[in-house]
Protein backbone atom coordinates (compact mmCIF):
# COMPACT_ATOMS: atom_id res chain seq x y z
CA UNK A 1 0.00 0.00 0.00
CA UNK A 2 2.86 2.37 0.85
CA UNK A 3 4.39 1.61 -2.53
CA UNK A 4 1.16 2.61 -4.29
CA UNK A 5 0.90 5.76 -2.20
CA UNK A 6 4.52 6.64 -2.98
CA UNK A 7 3.77 6.21 -6.68
CA UNK A 8 0.76 8.54 -6.48
CA UNK A 9 2.85 11.14 -4.64
CA UNK A 10 5.67 10.82 -7.17
CA UNK A 11 3.32 11.27 -10.14
CA UNK A 12 1.61 14.25 -8.53
CA UNK A 13 5.02 15.77 -7.89
CA UNK A 14 6.04 15.20 -11.50
CA UNK A 15 2.82 16.84 -12.70
CA UNK A 16 3.32 19.83 -10.39
CA UNK A 17 6.90 20.34 -11.57
CA UNK A 18 5.81 20.40 -15.22
CA UNK A 19 2.39 22.07 -15.04
CA UNK A 20 2.60 22.83 -18.76
CA UNK A 21 1.39 19.29 -19.51
CA UNK A 22 -1.85 19.67 -17.58
CA UNK A 23 -2.35 23.18 -18.91
CA UNK A 24 -1.89 21.98 -22.48
CA UNK A 25 -4.61 19.38 -22.00
CA UNK A 26 -6.93 22.03 -20.54
CA UNK A 27 -6.20 24.35 -23.45
CA UNK A 28 -7.01 21.53 -25.86
CA UNK A 29 -10.30 20.96 -24.02
CA UNK A 30 -11.39 24.59 -24.43
CA UNK A 31 -10.13 25.03 -27.99
CA UNK A 32 -11.68 21.81 -29.28
CA UNK A 33 -15.02 22.78 -27.73
CA UNK A 34 -14.74 26.20 -29.38
CA UNK A 35 -14.25 24.52 -32.75
CA UNK A 36 -17.66 22.91 -32.36
CA UNK A 37 -19.21 26.34 -32.01
CA UNK A 38 -17.59 27.34 -35.30
CA UNK A 39 -18.74 24.12 -36.91
CA UNK A 40 -22.33 24.33 -35.69
CA UNK A 41 -22.95 28.05 -35.65
CA UNK A 42 -23.54 30.53 -32.86
CA UNK A 43 -27.34 30.10 -32.46
CA UNK A 44 -27.89 29.40 -28.75
CA UNK A 45 -30.65 26.84 -29.38
CA UNK A 46 -28.52 24.79 -31.77
CA UNK A 47 -25.59 24.80 -29.35
CA UNK A 48 -27.73 24.06 -26.31
CA UNK A 49 -29.12 20.99 -28.04
CA UNK A 50 -25.62 19.45 -28.44
CA UNK A 51 -23.75 21.08 -25.52
CA UNK A 52 -23.72 17.99 -23.29
CA UNK A 53 -22.48 15.76 -26.06
CA UNK A 54 -19.72 18.19 -27.03
CA UNK A 55 -18.47 18.67 -23.48
CA UNK A 56 -18.33 14.92 -23.01
CA UNK A 57 -16.75 14.05 -26.34
CA UNK A 58 -14.09 16.73 -25.92
CA UNK A 59 -13.40 15.72 -22.31
CA UNK A 60 -13.02 12.16 -23.50
CA UNK A 61 -10.55 13.16 -26.21
CA UNK A 62 -8.58 15.35 -23.80
CA UNK A 63 -8.36 12.41 -21.41
CA UNK A 64 -7.21 10.21 -24.27
CA UNK A 65 -4.43 12.60 -25.23
CA UNK A 66 -3.09 12.68 -21.70
CA UNK A 67 -2.99 8.88 -21.55
CA UNK A 68 -0.54 8.56 -24.39
CA UNK A 69 2.49 8.94 -22.12
CA UNK A 70 1.05 7.22 -19.03
CA UNK A 71 3.25 4.12 -19.27
CA UNK A 72 5.34 4.96 -22.31
CA UNK A 73 7.31 7.56 -20.34
CA UNK A 74 8.00 4.94 -17.66
CA UNK A 75 9.18 2.48 -20.29
CA UNK A 76 11.38 5.04 -22.06
CA UNK A 77 13.53 5.88 -19.04
CA UNK A 78 13.56 2.37 -17.56
CA UNK A 79 11.27 3.10 -14.61
CA UNK A 80 8.82 0.47 -15.86
CA UNK A 81 11.28 -2.30 -14.96
CA UNK A 82 11.45 -0.96 -11.41
CA UNK A 83 7.63 -0.83 -11.16
CA UNK A 84 7.21 -4.36 -12.51
CA UNK A 85 9.95 -5.64 -10.16
CA UNK A 86 8.57 -3.94 -7.06
CA UNK A 87 7.52 -6.42 -4.38
CA UNK A 88 4.08 -4.77 -4.25
CA UNK A 89 1.46 -6.12 -6.62
CA UNK A 90 1.63 -4.55 -10.05
CA UNK A 91 -2.17 -4.45 -10.17
CA UNK A 92 -2.16 -2.06 -7.22
CA UNK A 93 0.53 0.09 -8.81
CA UNK A 94 -1.57 0.31 -11.98
CA UNK A 95 -4.45 1.67 -9.92
CA UNK A 96 -2.07 4.17 -8.34
CA UNK A 97 -1.02 5.38 -11.79
CA UNK A 98 -4.70 5.70 -12.78
CA UNK A 99 -5.51 7.66 -9.64
CA UNK A 100 -2.64 10.07 -10.25
CA UNK A 101 -3.64 10.45 -13.90
CA UNK A 102 -7.23 11.16 -12.87
CA UNK A 103 -6.13 13.73 -10.28
CA UNK A 104 -3.82 15.55 -12.67
CA UNK A 105 -5.98 15.44 -15.82
CA UNK A 106 -9.64 14.59 -15.25
CA UNK A 107 -10.06 16.68 -12.13
CA UNK A 108 -8.78 19.90 -13.78
CA UNK A 109 -11.06 19.13 -16.75
CA UNK A 110 -14.04 18.83 -14.44
CA UNK A 111 -13.16 22.15 -12.81
CA UNK A 112 -12.99 23.87 -16.20
CA UNK A 113 -16.03 22.12 -17.70
CA UNK A 114 -18.65 24.63 -16.42
CA UNK A 115 -16.89 27.38 -18.38
CA UNK A 116 -16.99 25.32 -21.55
CA UNK A 117 -20.62 24.37 -20.84
CA UNK A 118 -21.50 28.05 -20.48
CA UNK A 119 -19.87 28.88 -23.80
CA UNK A 120 -21.94 26.14 -25.37
CA UNK A 121 -25.21 27.41 -23.81
CA UNK A 122 -25.88 24.34 -21.68
CA UNK A 123 -29.32 24.82 -20.07
CA UNK A 124 -28.96 25.87 -16.43
CA UNK A 125 -30.68 22.82 -14.99
CA UNK A 126 -28.04 20.55 -16.55
CA UNK A 127 -24.91 21.84 -14.75
CA UNK A 128 -25.12 19.85 -11.55
CA UNK A 129 -25.81 16.63 -13.41
CA UNK A 130 -23.03 17.34 -15.90
CA UNK A 131 -20.54 17.70 -13.06
CA UNK A 132 -21.90 14.57 -11.42
CA UNK A 133 -21.55 12.55 -14.63
CA UNK A 134 -18.01 13.82 -15.09
CA UNK A 135 -17.14 12.80 -11.54
CA UNK A 136 -18.69 9.37 -12.01
CA UNK A 137 -17.58 8.79 -15.60
CA UNK A 138 -14.03 10.08 -15.92
CA UNK A 139 -12.57 7.40 -13.60
CA UNK A 140 -13.73 4.83 -16.17
CA UNK A 141 -11.93 6.83 -18.86
CA UNK A 142 -8.70 6.77 -16.86
CA UNK A 143 -9.04 3.07 -16.10
CA UNK A 144 -9.87 1.82 -19.59
CA UNK A 145 -7.37 4.28 -20.99
CA UNK A 146 -4.72 2.68 -18.79
CA UNK A 147 -5.38 -0.68 -20.48
CA UNK A 148 -4.85 0.90 -23.88
CA UNK A 149 -1.78 2.80 -22.70
CA UNK A 150 -0.26 -0.38 -21.25
CA UNK A 151 -1.01 -2.39 -24.40
CA UNK A 152 0.58 0.18 -26.69
CA UNK A 153 3.84 0.57 -24.74
CA UNK A 154 6.64 0.21 -27.25
CA UNK A 155 4.28 0.20 -30.23
CA UNK A 156 5.47 1.81 -33.43
CA UNK A 157 2.39 4.04 -33.90
CA UNK A 158 1.54 5.48 -30.50
CA UNK A 159 -1.31 7.96 -30.38
CA UNK A 160 -3.62 6.80 -33.16
CA UNK A 161 -3.30 3.21 -32.01
CA UNK A 162 -4.24 4.18 -28.47
CA UNK A 163 -7.34 5.97 -29.77
CA UNK A 164 -8.35 2.96 -31.83
CA UNK A 165 -8.03 0.66 -28.82
CA UNK A 166 -9.64 2.88 -26.24
CA UNK A 167 -12.42 4.81 -27.95
CA UNK A 168 -14.73 1.81 -28.51
CA UNK A 169 -14.40 1.02 -24.80
CA UNK A 170 -15.43 4.59 -23.95
CA UNK A 171 -18.78 4.35 -25.77
CA UNK A 172 -20.87 3.19 -22.77
CA UNK A 173 -19.51 6.03 -20.60
CA UNK A 174 -20.43 8.59 -23.23
CA UNK A 175 -23.91 7.14 -23.73
CA UNK A 176 -24.85 6.88 -20.05
CA UNK A 177 -23.35 10.24 -19.11
CA UNK A 178 -25.00 12.24 -21.89
CA UNK A 179 -28.30 10.41 -21.33
CA UNK A 180 -28.23 11.39 -17.65
CA UNK A 181 -27.69 15.10 -18.36
CA UNK A 182 -30.28 15.17 -21.12
CA UNK A 183 -32.81 13.40 -18.91
CA UNK A 184 -32.22 16.04 -16.23
CA UNK A 185 -32.66 18.87 -18.75
CA UNK A 186 -35.85 17.25 -20.06
CA UNK A 187 -37.20 17.11 -16.51
CA UNK A 188 -36.83 13.35 -16.18
CA UNK A 189 -34.92 11.43 -13.56
CA UNK A 190 -31.23 10.92 -14.42
CA UNK A 191 -30.94 8.22 -11.78
CA UNK A 192 -31.03 5.08 -13.96
CA UNK A 193 -28.34 6.52 -16.23
CA UNK A 194 -26.22 7.56 -13.27
CA UNK A 195 -26.48 4.10 -11.76
CA UNK A 196 -25.39 2.54 -15.04
CA UNK A 197 -22.50 5.01 -15.25
CA UNK A 198 -21.38 4.15 -11.73
CA UNK A 199 -21.82 0.45 -12.41
CA UNK A 200 -19.64 0.73 -15.47
CA UNK A 201 -17.01 2.45 -13.31
CA UNK A 202 -17.01 -0.47 -10.88
CA UNK A 203 -16.67 -2.83 -13.83
CA UNK A 204 -13.72 -0.82 -15.18
CA UNK A 205 -12.15 -0.92 -11.72
CA UNK A 206 -12.35 -4.71 -11.61
CA UNK A 207 -10.88 -5.54 -15.01
CA UNK A 208 -8.33 -2.75 -15.51
CA UNK A 209 -5.74 -3.82 -12.91
CA UNK A 210 -5.46 -7.32 -14.35
CA UNK A 211 -5.52 -6.40 -18.02
CA UNK A 212 -3.12 -3.47 -17.67
CA UNK A 213 -0.73 -5.36 -15.36
CA UNK A 214 -0.65 -8.29 -17.81
CA UNK A 215 0.12 -5.87 -20.63
CA UNK A 216 2.90 -4.17 -18.63
CA UNK A 217 4.51 -7.52 -17.82
CA UNK A 218 4.51 -8.31 -21.52
CA UNK A 219 6.01 -4.90 -22.25
CA UNK A 220 8.91 -5.47 -19.85
CA UNK A 221 9.85 -8.95 -21.02
Amino acid sequence: MNAALALVVRDLRLALRTPAETLTILAFFVIAATLFAFGIGPEPQALARVATGIVWVVALLACLISLDRLFQSEADDGSLDQLVLAPASLELLVLAKCLAQWLTTALPLIVVSPIVATMLQLPAQGYATLLLTLLLGTPSLSLFGAIGAALSVGARKGGALLALIVLPLYIPVLIFAVAAVEAQIAGLSPRPHLFLLAGFGVFALTITPFAAAAALRQASE
Binding site: S152, A155, R156, K157, L161, L164, I165, A215, A219, E221
Partner: peptide, 15 residues
Protein backbone atom coordinates in the same frame (compact mmCIF):
# COMPACT_ATOMS: atom_id res chain seq x y z
CA UNK B 1 -3.47 -2.54 -35.63
CA UNK B 2 -2.15 -3.62 -32.22
CA UNK B 3 -1.11 -7.02 -33.52
CA UNK B 4 1.12 -5.49 -36.18
CA UNK B 5 2.36 -2.53 -34.13
CA UNK B 6 5.48 -4.15 -32.65
CA UNK B 7 8.83 -5.16 -34.02
CA UNK B 8 8.63 -8.48 -32.18
CA UNK B 9 5.63 -10.44 -33.51
CA UNK B 10 5.25 -12.29 -30.17
CA UNK B 11 4.70 -9.03 -28.34
CA UNK B 12 2.04 -7.99 -30.84
CA UNK B 13 0.35 -11.37 -30.58
CA UNK B 14 0.24 -11.30 -26.79
CA UNK B 15 -0.85 -7.67 -26.52
Amino acid sequence: ALNSAFDEPERGARA
